[in-house]
Design a binder for these strands. Structure first.
Lengths: 341, 341
DNA sequence: CTGAAAGCGCTTACAG
DNA sequence: CTGAAAGCGCTTACAG
């Protein structure tokens, strides 16, 4: 026998019982006498014995591991400052329930598009969590057919047979716009990176909806697409402030663009938030180091991760239950670029 | 038999061979006739059979999984913008070699300080990678005693019997200081967050070393500790610029402090890089959105991750080999706050 | 309450 | 080249 590897047999021998009894002790089974249990426990402690998790996985046919699928080539995903909060939310909730988090990159390794199918087919993990953008048709089919525990981050197109968690981006746009309206803005512009990004489109939808609720006409002249980055932010703000009747409310779909725009306004001597007000998205360092600090729609990615983890574990426990969906509300963090009560 | 779970036996039966032959086919063993192999392959494809990775782990007593230990409560670690690059470097290299990355938080779960020992004792992973700050004595002992595959990120105190990878922070300080000297700076200050942070102390050491090499006296009046954050950056820059003979070179240990300092200099009408030059550390978004962009000592955390992964895999392959150590060089990214050739 | 035994799905030395 | 069989370290129905 190889030294150092101490198994249940060694414990059984030392304690003078069968391996079944040791196993029962380990599993806190009621089918064991208290004194036997104590005796075995002492031996286990003495030998510093730990069960071999691989063997346990094998008999239970479960790894107690959940895969989080990422795509490191997708910068919007992996480079997102919220990514770590999300990951932490996942890890924390899984850890609390005795599960482990495995990070699987679709583009690493040698499996290419087949990465996810392989994970499932090989039973390497008990469940998966993946961003909506990575849901391809064949993956969705595999998951649905096999009823494999899975939670999608972001609402997928085919949503009824798959569990998902998403942020209420529409609400985000609405809350921000309403705040600007409530604090005196008469002409609010929406400046987005790309409406092809679903969350940008949703935020725009919220913007429109807020205006509609107040019976304010939503003009196409007030909606701008394709502005991403500090330079683009500077450009659009310069253009807008040079108009005859410039806007007094600005909604940006991202922080860095808002940062550029804000710096132009400051340079031109525009008083903020007295003359113009700005709201952006995501509470990152960029919104914090701006002067004044940028008011943002804040999202709780830790919570998103927690909920996704909880959902996937619930599927493990009750595979036949209906799939769950959850839309997380967002809140406005009022800082220096808006008038606040 | 439970439906849907198709095993090696099913394949053997369908192909009219023994499970040993199927296994040999799967493992590309030379001990099998080519035509037998082809026949089995066809059946495997037809049945969409995949081997059960749990069973394989069991017989091989290896999980093909490496744990990356993190501490989400340690913001300097987990909140670090480079964290994801590091993680990506790890994942990418491991994936390339057919290994998986598991993220284990010391503070999640119910195991507390025992998390790492538990991972090792239960054989849940084949190796671990952990930041230096998380190396406690009992962990180091467990690793050394069991000769468990492990790589530390950052040079540990007891370094000879443990593999580690670190950034050459001393070199970083030296390179930055030398660049400033080479471009005309006569009075260079070092402004750090806390010298208790080992990488800050190392950068300071590099600063001193660069001055010494040029026979320049290293005065204590030029070294500042406790400056962290935008506000603190503004404060120190205001103080220094108000001196009778202000410095013309500034080395900051972090970006956000440098950002604050830079904004003060700009506001006071100081010409950059003509009148003063600034170098900071880490190529983050903060250094990019500053005007002008901040010159930084850039580190390659992807490479750090790659090397750590490679090292741990080499230990798996050759457990008896001597432990490796590696110091990664860093380079200066010259941008707007320094004079460049 | 306890133990002998089957079995989880593979890999691999052994015999042929 | 091929197959029968042992074995990896546990859990758990079964018999007592």
């Amino acid at each position: 026998m190889k030294m150092g590897t101490i198994t249940i047999k060694d414990i059984a021998k030392r304690a003078g019982v069968s391996i079944a009894s040791v196993s029962r002790c380990l599993n806190d089974s009621p089918l064991i006498a208290v004194d036997t249990k104590e005796r075995i426990k002492a031996v286990i402690k003495e030998c510093q014995y730990s069960r071999n998790s691989i063997a346990r996985s094998f008999v239970n046919q479960a790894t107690h591991t959940i895969a989080f699928i990422v795509d490191s080539q997708n910068f919007a995903l992996f480079g997102n400052p919220y990514f770590l909060q999300l990951q932490y939310g996942l890890e924390k909730m899984l850890g609390l329930r005795g599960y482990y988090l495995m990070i699987v990159n679709m583009n690493s390794g040698v499996h290419g598009d087949n990465t996810i199918n392989k994970l499932i087919a090989e039973k390497r993990v008990d469940g998966i969590i993946l961003p909506e953008v990575l849901v391809k048709n064949d993956i969705a089919n595999t998951i649905i057919e096999r009823n494999f525990p899975c939670v999608v981050l972001g609402k997928p197109h085919e949503d009824t047979r798959i569990s998902w968690v998403d942020l209420d981006n529409v609400m985000g746009g609405e809350v921000a716009t309403t705040h600007l309206l409530d604090h005196g803005c008469k002409k609010i512009v929406f400046i987005g990176t790309s409406f092809k990004k679903i969350f940008v489109a949703q935020r725009l939808e919220g913007y429109k909806s807020a205006l509609m609720k107040r019976n304010i006409k939503c003009s196409h002249d007030l909606i701008f697409e394709g502005y991403e980055g500090k330079g683009k932010g500077r450009e659009i703000m310069n253009t807008l402030l040079s108009m005859e009747c410039p806007p007094d409310g600005f909604l940006f779909s991202d922080n860095i663009t808002a940062f550029g725009a804000l710096s132009v306004a400051t340079e031109r001597g525009v008083k903020i938030p007295e003359e113009i007000q700005i709201v952006s998205y995501d509470d990152t360092i960029v919104s914090r180091i701006a002067t004044p600090e940028i008011s943002v729609v804040d999202i709780d990615m830790f919570e998103l991760g927690s909920q996704a983890a909880t959902m996937v574990l619930e599927q493990l426990e009750a595979p036949s239950k209906n799939k769950q969906q959850s839309l997380l509300s967002v809140k406005l963090a009022c800082r220096g670029t808006t008038k606040n009560d």
